[in-house]
Amino acid sequence: MIRAVLAIVLLLAGPVHATQDAFPGLYDVTGVASDDVLNIRSGPGASHAIIGSLPPDATDIEVIAPDDRHRWAKINFREGTGWVSMDYLVPHPGQVSGFVPDIRHCFGTEPFWSLTYDQPRITLSMPDIEPRDGLISGYHGSLSRRDRFAFTGSFFPTAAGDREIQLFVRQEICTDGMSDREYGIAADVLIKRPTAGGDHSGTGFYAGCCSLTPPSAR
């Protein structure tokens, strides 16, 4: 409900371009014969080499960004990226500029961290702590930028102490530092853990990327 209300407010308050498709976004393959495939190419055009394919019933394809003419879509494929024709993709409904992105997984390296998100539940995994479960309780859109958002929440209490989390995301190209993959959302995460003295000297600040699909889907 919070997300729905925020989305309506952002759409009504913004200019006409707010109704344009947002990227990254989730798409399904359409218009491909049952005995055919949708080719993945090395670049945005039919003259580029075929490097793979998508089945005719493929769903939840995360389009990172379109080309300049919005004819070809960049997607992640294996350990890199590829391009598919947007003539054979249909977007999931409700993905328009200014809406809170429906992220499912954020992650980073050095140190490694991973945050999975299945509304409203979150799970944080990091090398120095046991996996922590919690809830996202708030969503906030920037008053001056349509591509900036903040998520706030907390983890369930444990013997290690309560932890608050603030996730700041922006829609821009991001790399994971471990492959040639690209993602359409960059993230900064602030995790606050109060110490015995009552301050937040246990706070950690981390950076990484986010995806609209869970880890198991990639």
Rank of each mutant, 00 (worst) to 15 (best):
Ala49Asn: 13
Phe168Gln: 12
Leu54Val: 00
Ala217Phe: 15
Arg69Ile: 01
Ser216Ile: 04
Leu11Arg: 15
Thr116Gly: 02
Gly138Phe: 12
Gly208Gln: 14
Gln20Ser: 11
Val32Trp: 00
Ile8Gln: 06
Phe155His: 03
Phe99Gly: 02
Ile185Val: 15
Ala207Gly: 05
Phe156Asn: 14
Phe77Val: 14
Pro24Lys: 07
Ser42Asn: 07
Val63Asp: 01
Pro101His: 07
Ile64Pro: 01
Thr116Glu: 01
Val32Phe: 01
Gly43Ala: 08
Pro101Leu: 02
Gly134His: 08
Gly14Tyr: 07
Ala207His: 12
Gly94Cys: 01
Ile103Gly: 01
Ser201Arg: 02
Asp57Thr: 12
Val90Cys: 08
His105Tyr: 15
Pro111Trp: 07
Pro55Thr: 07
Asp180Gly: 15
Gly161Met: 02
Ile122Gln: 09
Ser142Thr: 05
Asp35Lys: 07
Ala186Phe: 08
Phe156Glu: 10
Asp28Glu: 12
Gln171Gly: 03
Ala46Phe: 12
Gly197Asn: 00
Phe23Ala: 05
Pro56Asp: 04
Leu124Val: 10
Leu167Arg: 10
Trp72Leu: 11
Ser114Tyr: 08
Asp60Gly: 07
Ala13Gln: 09
His17Gln: 04
Asn76Leu: 03
Ala22Pro: 00
Thr213Cys: 11
Phe168Ser: 14
Asp188Val: 12
Cys106Asn: 14
Ser211Ala: 15
Ser53Gly: 09
Met178Phe: 10
Asp128Asn: 09
Asn39Gly: 10
Pro44Val: 13
Arg41His: 07
Gly134Asn: 05
Leu190Gly: 08
Tyr27Leu: 09
Val32Glu: 04
Gly197Ile: 00
Gly208Arg: 14
Val100Asp: 05
Gly43Gln: 03
Arg104Thr: 06
Ile185His: 05
Arg41Cys: 10
Ser42Cys: 05
Phe151Trp: 03
Ile185Gln: 06
Ala196Gly: 02
Gly94Thr: 02
Ile64Lys: 01
Ala22Tyr: 02
Pro66Val: 08
Ala4Met: 05
Gly43Asn: 04
Phe168Leu: 15
Leu10Val: 10
Pro127His: 04
Ser47Cys: 01
Ala65Arg: 14
Leu167Thr: 09
Gly141Ile: 12
Ser125Lys: 13
Lys192Gly: 12
Leu89Asn: 07
Arg145Ala: 12
Val189Gln: 09
Leu26Ile: 03
Asp176Gln: 10
Leu11Lys: 11
Phe155Glu: 05
Thr152Ala: 11
Tyr206Cys: 03
Ala18Val: 11
Ala73Cys: 00
His105Asn: 14
Ile129Met: 15
Ala217Val: 06
Ser201Ile: 04
Arg71Cys: 03
Val32Leu: 09
Leu6Arg: 13
Arg69Gln: 06
Ala4Phe: 00
Ala159Gly: 08
Tyr117Lys: 10
Phe112Ile: 08
Pro56Ser: 06
His200Leu: 15
Ile50Glu: 15
Leu135Thr: 11
Met86Thr: 14
Ile191Arg: 05
Phe149Arg: 05
Arg121His: 12
Gly197Gln: 00
Gly141Leu: 08
Gly198Pro: 03
Pro93His: 00
